[in-house]
Design a protein around this nucleic acid. Structure first.
Length: 538
DNA sequence: CGTTTTTGACCTGCGC
DNA sequence: GCGCAGGTCAAAAACG
């Protein structure tokens, strides 16, 4: 910092033509002194800022270490308690891990009635976990396999259990049809229902996301000769989560998987990767739709804005284009849909980091948002989403260079994790609503989750300060996950749970958790060029 | 024999 | 009201 200040002085001196010692005029001398004085004061300011930043960095490191210690303590508690009381029947994921993570699509996880009868010990332990701030805003919890999820927040306890199932899936199905008592809830549910569409190149019939699915229907949809398969989550009997799998008509190697609903049960760790991804995406979508539907979306719709952040370029595309790209086979999406395009993008984006596009259709009833994480490199997949092969280090990503100043250790094994976190970084930096969601998550994690639902703009400044802390989402959200290669669903399906692979690299190596975290300081308001006003103006 | 998949029928929402 | 399309149900078949 101080060196940069000296450089600034020199630069200014050059600007004023003061580098020559032959200037001898008194007025020029005065000017020179004036400039030097101002430069000195500027240097002082820079030093002050440098000192503040150092203090902030120290505090962040302390917080990070304390969080890590608490996390490890909880892990040890769980393992020890499991060893002492482990007599429960083994679940089919016992091969993987005893930890289950419940993730919710940005909403309160709904619980079946029977799970309200969870034991007091489970609740007490859960309270411990809540106190340990392991609950993200995305409702990620680490639980033992023998535990069931109880309502973790007062807001959830207020909810009627009868309404819970209907909140996450069409109430007309979960709740008996023709039941007028639930019409209002149905409307709310419909308004809040979000779909996360994942496009990935996959030759197998379906991609493995860690969950257990049962096919309950198949239909030929209009405009696509490839049938659309309907799957239902069978991890829990009452889980409302469903997914649709369909191949792209234009490129049958592309598998389009649409997730809908919220898991109301603990997830196998192998499923948390996809769940966390879809959770974040859906949360972003829901958060964005809540504002866009009030008129803000029209602004975004009309724009093809591009912002740059530290060399990262993000662009917003209009919906027509996005629709052509992401919804070639269907009419306007009936529900708010966010698309994670993890395929090779035929369009040449100016950013080497893929494309993030958020768009809202004027024809669709609900907004549609697209996240394109595709590589511009032909026939390449992000190493985190592939055919089950984690090609760490086989492909170079330019964004890693951007982080070299921040990441002292740039191991190849951490490359995929960087991809994930970079993806999140881009998404957060590009979309204020996503920032809000993530900020809420962090806020709940740091501040004890007391105000998890408060995502208004007044608190955004505080949240952005939270971003300045060294929190590694890739590790936090998928901690203790590992590869799901052992979870092959009858030998078919893509082992595309990319995030498991990367998280396995972190979980298996405990020391990796001590790696420098992502520079979330880029989200500080000072360095955030893409603030709300700019987006809303455009 | 239990679970999963298949597939035709049925239901619902929407546009005309 | 009718037709269409998407989504779901449920019985039968297939599978392990």
């Amino acid at each position: 910092m101080s060196s940069s200040g000296a450089a600034a002085i020199e630069e200014r001196a050059v600007q004023f033509g003061l580098t020559s010692r032959e200037d001898s005029g008194s007025s020029q001398e005065a000017k020179k002194e004036e400039v030097i004085e101002s430069a000195k004061s500027e240097t002082g300011d820079v030093r002050e800022e440098n000192h503040r930043l150092k203090m902030m960095l120290e505090r962040i490191e302390k917080d990070y270490q304390s969080l890590q210690l608490r996390f490890f303590d909880i892990l040890q508690q769980e393992t020890s308690s499991k060893q002492s009381t482990d007599s429960a029947p083994s679940h089919d994921e016992t091969e993987e891990s005893n930890e289950l993570v419940s993730l919710c699509l940005g909403r309160s996880p709904s619980e079946p009635k029977k799970e309200d009868k969870s034991t007091n010990s489970a609740k007490s332990r859960e309270n411990e976990e809540l106190k340990a701030n392991l609950t993200l805003g995305l409702d990620s919890k680490i639980l033992t396999s023998t535990e069931t999820v109880s309502n973790p927040s007062p807001a959830e306890s207020v909810e009627e259990p009868k309404e819970e199932a209907g909140e996450t899936w069409p109430p007309s199905k979960v709740i008996p049809k023709r039941n007028g008592d639930h019409d209002e809830a149905a409307q709310q549910s419909q308004a809040k229902r979000a779909r996360v569409c994942v496009r990935v190149r996959c030759e197998t019939p379906t991609m493995i996301d860690g969950c257990q699915w049962r096919k309950y229907g198949q239909k030929i949809s209009k405009g696509n000769p490839c049938p659309r398969a309907y799957y239902r989550c069978t991890v829990a009997p009452l889980c409302p989560v469903r997914k649709q799998v369909q191949r792209c008509a234009e490129d049958t190697s592309i598998l389009i998987t649409t997730y809908e609903g919220t898991h109301n049960h603990p997830l196998p760790v192998s499923a948390t990767a996809m769940a966390s991804t879809t959770s974040a995406a859906a949360s972003m979508l829901l958060s964005g739709s809540s504002t866009s539907q009030e008129g803000l979306g029209s602004h975004i719709n009309a724009t093809s804005a591009r912002t740059e952040l530290n060399g990262l370029s993000f662009s917003l595309h209009d919906h027509l284009r996005a629709k052509q790209i992401y919804f070639p086979n269907s009419s306007s999406p009936a529900f708010p849909t966010i698309t994670l395009d993890l395929t090779t993008s035929p369009s040449t984006s100016t950013t080497p980091f893929g494309r993030f596009s958020s768009s809202f259709s004027s024809t669709s009833r609900y907004p549609s948002t697209s996240l394109n994480f595709s590589s511009t490199e032909p026939n390449s997949l992000p190493p985190i989403w592939g055919n089950g092969l984690h090609n760490y280090g086989t492909r170079s990503y330019n964004h890693q260079q951007l982080y070299q100043s921040f990441m002292e250790k740039n191991h190849q094994a951490a490359a995929s994790q960087q991809v994930l976190t970079d993806t999140l970084t881009k998404a957060i930096a590009s979309d204020p609503s996503f920032r809000t969601v993530i900020a809420t998550a962090i806020s709940s994690m740091i501040g004890g989750g007391g105000s998890a639902n408060a995502n208004n703009r007044n608190q955004r400044a505080g949240y952005q300060n939270c971003f300045g802390q060294n929190l590694n989402f890739g590790e936090t959200m998928t901690t203790s996950a590992f590869s799901i290669n052992s979870l092959s669903q009858n030998g078919k399906g893509c082992a595309s749970s990319c995030f498991n692979g990367l998280s396995s690299s972190t979980s298996q190596k405990g020391s990796s958790q001590l790696q420098p975290a992502l520079p979330f300081s880029v989200f500080n308001s000072a360095s955030m060029p893409n603030n709300d006003n700019e987006e809303h103006k455009s």
